[in-house]
């Protein structure tokens, strides 16, 4: 299962930013795809779940890795 996770390394991404990178990836992914965003922007762990809720996507969780967070979402629609 871990092999199927798409990882987006958005560390250091001020523009377009981690959430925009996630939206870009989710648009071209298959339904069911799990996407993990690596972000050192502290706002991402708030922005990403909020957007996932608005857009009807499944927010799976946040894992802290010291200097960055890994935020995971599943494409469901």
């Amino acid at each position: 299962m871990a092999d199927n996770i798409m990882v987006i390394d958005a560390r250091g991404s001020f523009c377009p930013g981690p959430l925009m990178e996630l939206i870009r990836a989710i648009k071209s992914a298959e339904i069911g795809q799990v996407i993990a965003v690596l972000s050192n922007d502290s706002g991402s762990k708030k922005d990403i779940p909020l957007w996932a809720g608005k857009a009807g996507q499944e927010f799976i969780g946040v894992e802290a890795h010291g200097e960055y967070d890994e935020i995971t979402v599943r494409k469901v629609r």
């Binding site: 930013g17 959430l19 925009m20 939206i23 922005d47 909020l50």
Partner: peptide
Amino acid sequence: YPLGRAHSIPSV
């Protein structure tokens, strides 16, 4: 705008 604010960069 696609995000929850007026630009992707928080300061902008």
